[in-house]
């Protein structure tokens, strides 16, 4: 562990030292996360442009997303609050797994990672329920102009999909499905990666290496997923 300046020590020219004091894997995970963050920023700013262009037609999220599973009462934004809590909770369990890895405590790492995986699945399932409810729509429906068999028809439609949207401008549906779908895909792939690393930990691969850095790298990805959700949640549901 070299604390003096990296350029003074002659042996550094042979490699094996990082001036940023971080390993390849972690550094490039950070770089990947920045590129992914830029992608999501582009999507969200496109959403912002469209939302302000159609400010009069845009549905109000607290009026659209006011359903809660197994509850008939209208609770605006309650379900998305639950989803956010689930994801933040899984982020906390992930960082606790990383901390347990720093203590080389294999059993704790496995427990915390298992909880993270469960949280991830819970989030994806909740998002699926939210999509289902958005697509099904309300009982009363709304009058919209839709194209059926090549003809423009004025009829009551229910729910939202890529051709019509009961709640307002059809772009809202397109953006909602695309951005939350993209994010949900990241969550799902994150869960699969977490399962892979969990199996690696269980088989003792990390113990053999002597460090749990893989858990930390995967933890970075999982926290990034949570970070993106914080922004998506703000832009879609609050603003």
């Amino acid at each position: 562990m070299s604390d003096h300046a990296s350029t003074d020590y002659p042996a550094n020219w042979g490699g094996g030292v990082s001036p940023l004091k971080v390993s390849y894997g972690k550094l490039f995970m950070w770089f990947f996360l920045i590129s992914d963050a830029l992608t999501f920023s582009a999507f969200l700013s496109a959403y912002g442009f469209m939302r302000h262009k159609f400010a009069g037609y845009w549905p109000e999220p607290s009026k659209v997303f006011h359903h809660f599973p197994f509850v008939t009462k209208e609770l605006p934004l309650a379900y998305v609050g639950l989803m956010t809590f689930i994801l933040i909770m899984s982020s906390v369990t992930m960082v606790l797994a990383v901390e347990a890895g720093h203590r080389k405590d294999k059993k704790s790492v496995m427990i915390w990672m298992l909880l993270t995986i469960v949280g991830g699945f819970a989030f994806v399932g909740s998002q699926a329920w939210e999509w289902f409810h958005f697509i099904t729509g309300t009982e009363q429906g709304a009058w919209k102009d839709v194209i059926i068999d090549g003809k423009l028809v004025h009829k009551i439609v229910h729910g939202a999909n890529l051709t019509f949207n009961e709640y307002g401008n059809s772009l809202f549906g397109a953006f909602f499905f695309f951005i939350t779908g993209f994010h949900g895909f990241h969550v799902f792939s994150g869960v699969l990666i977490n399962i892979t690393i969990f199996i690696m930990v269980a088989r003792g691969v990390m113990e053999k290496r002597g460090h749990y850095e893989m858990v930390e790298k995967v933890g970075l990805y999982w926290h990034f997923v949570d970070l993106v959700w914080v922004f998506v949640f703000t832009f879609f549901y609050l603003l």
């Binding site: 990082s18 390849y24 960082v95 002597g210 460090h211 850095e213």
Partner: peptide, 27 residues
Amino acid sequence: FHDDFPQYEFRDQHGEAEGKIQRKRLW
């Protein structure tokens, strides 16, 4: 599998006492 720069990961490893402090901060 040969890891690159494992010394940085070893630098981050800590014992139970330090772990307790970090967990408190995280919560």
